[in-house]
Design a protein around this nucleic acid. Structure first.
Length: 669
DNA sequence: CAACTAAATCTTTTT
DNA sequence: GATTTAGTTG
């Protein structure tokens, strides 16, 4: 990549950016807040700013880019390097968690941790809580919240800065009488993490903030990162906000966000932080980006109307576009989930025949399981898809098993991984596990601690041999698999399918030559589990995307299907408690709708009482944010699917595709 | 003490 | 449907 002369580059900037984008991209020193509506070229602006800073002679390694996902950090860096060359590779970037991790690997001793600490993902954390909870439960005979519930209560308390008691009161008042027991579990959880050198996701932020309270640490870090940019600022929580303020005392902080897209309050995020930014950083300049480059006007009309009804929007902006024409969004009522899936499948095939790649289509859902029915349908029709959100590759039992061996090698005091690994041996249960863990040193020294005549003895000796070694991750994995694969074959009936996952883990592990790096990368940026049938014949990399709305944030597709838009799914049942939560669900709908570039289809199935909800409540009403002020009638074309139309396969095709469709029998079986 | 079976309960979103 | 608890067997 060749560098362009400064003048030429500036001219190119001015050509490709609108005046407000230009103002933000060429901003140099001092705090700036960019309020960027959906699809307003926010990423492009950030990329150009990076390029501009580097061009002004700023050392790339003094630029820190905090983004919401690692993927978007890479994305921006890649785009910046096409403008300004390889120097942009030196820009530091990542999520709050990954940056905290990176710096804690250096500064952990400041907060009393070993730099080789292990990161607990959510289910590891729950396992640890489960152990502690088990100890408590024997002394209790009341119904007690399960480990994952306790885990989220603790996490919520940490992230919102509220007391555990008040979180319980808001979240699950039915457990209020057990509050002091839960508190005791939380305290023990914190202690156990420290003695075992474990940090959960929250700890990464918490201890990073604590480290920054040390003047010497803060000085070095803010001196290193002279220019900071934070994307998705509306989703920062109080801890992250503190971190920004401590790291950014030089004031060269640019925050980018959209209060209308704040959807992470369950993680302690509050739009108050973006509203307070000008207070935290005096003399902040505010720039608003409100020209939309993504969607057609009919789609924007609907999204503007949806967010316009929000009572909580502060930086009000009505998005507009210069693009003409476009199809209105389509609202489809289906008899049931089955009919919904059928319709989506048929439409996908129709679009594909029109030349739209599966890569340009997405199905968005509020919760992971909302696509269960559709996934079955897609599998049956051989339409390949990739699902984001829901459970992850790393969370499947067999992958967690393998990673646990690696974690034990990295951090021998990680008791959770020890118990996972030991529990895999035949004849080893809870009692034996705790006996082994408390006598590890003696065992390693060659003592038998009275276990030599148990049936697990041989396996245990073999295990210890495997874990002795320090080697390249790839070699370690080979050794581990030699020990683990026989155990896996016995344990899981479907070990053939699981074997495939193990195989796909190998190349990932081979990319790393350092075990600590491998492990923190796996926890902070877990590879997504892709699934779905393979389209017959020359299968390219073409895949439909199914994604939760949360995971779809920041992305866009030509065609978007928003399914299961019944009141109770969105807004979700659990959110109906408070006005604030309901407003967040409205913003969630807004985020979903603004992902669509050209075609937007909203589906509402009729959910009969046969649904998963125990009380037998039928969910029949459309999403309340769409019925309010009759938005459906005003901004969409409506289709009601009748049984007959399904039988005869006479589909009504929206937009430019409304010519009669030929039957597509070849795809049905 | 480990492993299995049966009944009971609650079901969002993510780093 | 998964997770959890109690009760049973080997």
């Amino acid at each position: 990549m060749t560098y362009q002369p400064a003048l030429e580059l500036a001219a190119q900037f001015k050509d490709e950016l609108n005046p407000n984008q230009w103002r933000a991209a060429t901003h140099l020193d001092g705090p700036m807040l960019v309020i960027a509506g959906a699809g307003s070229g926010k990423t492009k602006t950030l990329v150009y700013r990076v390029a501009h800073l580097i061009h002004q002679g700023i050392d790339p390694s003094s630029i820190l880019l905090l983004t919401f996902t690692k993927k978007s950090a890479y994305d921006m860096m890649r785009r910046a390097s096409s403008i300004v060359g390889d120097r942009s590779q030196q820009v530091a970037g990542g999520t709050f968690h990954s940056v905290a991790n990176m710096l804690l690997r250096v500064f952990a001793p400041t907060v009393g941790f070993d730099p080789g600490f292990t990161i607990l993902d959510r289910s590891d954390a729950d396992d640890l809580i489960g152990v502690i909870r088990g100890n408590w439960l024997s002394r209790l005979d009341v119904r007690f919240p399960k480990k994952s519930t306790i885990g989220s209560l603790i996490s919520r308390a940490v992230n919102t800065g509220k007391s555990l008691e008040s979180v319980i009161a808001e979240d699950s008042p039915n457990f209020l009488e057990m509050a002091s027991d839960i508190r005791q579990i939380a305290i023990e959880y914190t202690e156990r993490k420290r003695t075992s050198q474990l940090m959960d996701y929250d700890d990464l932020l918490l201890f990073f903030r604590e480290a920054l309270e040390n003047r010497l640490v803060a000085d070095q870090i803010s001196e290193q990162y002279r220019y900071m940019m934070i994307d998705e600022y509306q989703d920062t929580n109080a801890i992250q906000c503190d971190i920004i303020r401590m790291m950014g005392r030089h004031g060269n902080v640019m925050a980018v966000g959209d209060d209308a897209q704040s959807i992470y309050s369950f993680r302690g995020a509050s739009i108050q932080h973006i509203l307070d930014f000008p207070t935290h950083f005096p003399n902040t300049q505010v720039v608003t980006l409100d020209q939309n480059y993504r969607s057609t006007q009919p789609i924007l009309d609907l999204t503007n109307a949806v967010i316009g009804q929000s009572t909580h929007s502060h930086y009000t902006k009505v998005l507009f576009t210069n693009q003409d024409g476009g199809a209105r969004p389509v609202y489809i009522e289906a008899m049931d989930e089955r009919a919904q899936s059928q319709y989506v499948k048929t439409q996908i095939l129709a679009f594909r025949e029109e030349g739209v790649s599966l890569n340009d289509m997405a199905v968005l859902i509020r919760s992971g399981y909302h696509s269960n029915d559709l996934e079955i349908e897609l599998n049956a029709s051989g339409i390949p898809f990739q699902k984001f959100g829901g459970f992850k590759f790393l969370e499947t039992a067999h992958i967690k098993d393998v990673v646990a061996y690696l974690k034990v090698i990295q951090n021998p005091s990680d008791e959770i991984s020890w118990s996972r690994v030991l529990g895999l041996l035949d004849g080893v249960g809870a009692k034996t596990i705790s006996r082994i863990i408390s006598n590890l040193d003696r065992l390693r020294a060659g003592e038998t601690i009275g276990l030599h005549k148990k049936r697990c003895w041989d396996g245990l000796k073999q295990l210890l041999g495997v874990l002795e070694n320090r080697d390249l991750p790839a070699k370690l994995l080979d050794r581990i698999l030699a020990h683990y694969l026989p155990l896996m074959t016995i344990r899981y009936d479907d070990h053939h399918r699981r074997m495939g996952d193990i195989e796909s883990l190998k190349p990932i592990v081979a990319r790393f030559d350092s075990l600590p790096l491998l492990l923190s990368d796996l926890s902070l940026d877990p590879p997504e589990l892709s699934q779905g049938g393979v389209l017959g014949g020359g299968s390219d990399d073409e895949r439909l995307t199914i994604s939760t709305i949360h995971s779809a944030k920041g992305l866009e597709w030509q065609v978007v299907f928003l399914i299961s838009m019944v009141d109770g799914y969105l807004p979700s049942m659990q959110s109906l408690g408070s006005d604030d939560q309901i407003e967040e669900e409205r913003r969630l709908l807004y985020v979903a709708l603004t992902r669509a570039k050209r075609y937007l289809m909203i589906l509402k199935p009729h959910m009969e009482s046969g649904g998963r909800f125990g009380s037998g409540v039928a969910l029949t009403e459309p999403c309340r944010f769409l019925t309010q002020s009759n938005l459906i009638a005003h901004y969409t074309n409506q289709i009601v699917l009748k049984k007959e139309s399904r039988r005869h396969r006479q589909w009504v095709v929206p937009g430019s595709l409304d010519s009669p469709q030929p039957s597509r029998k070849k795809y049905y079986f």
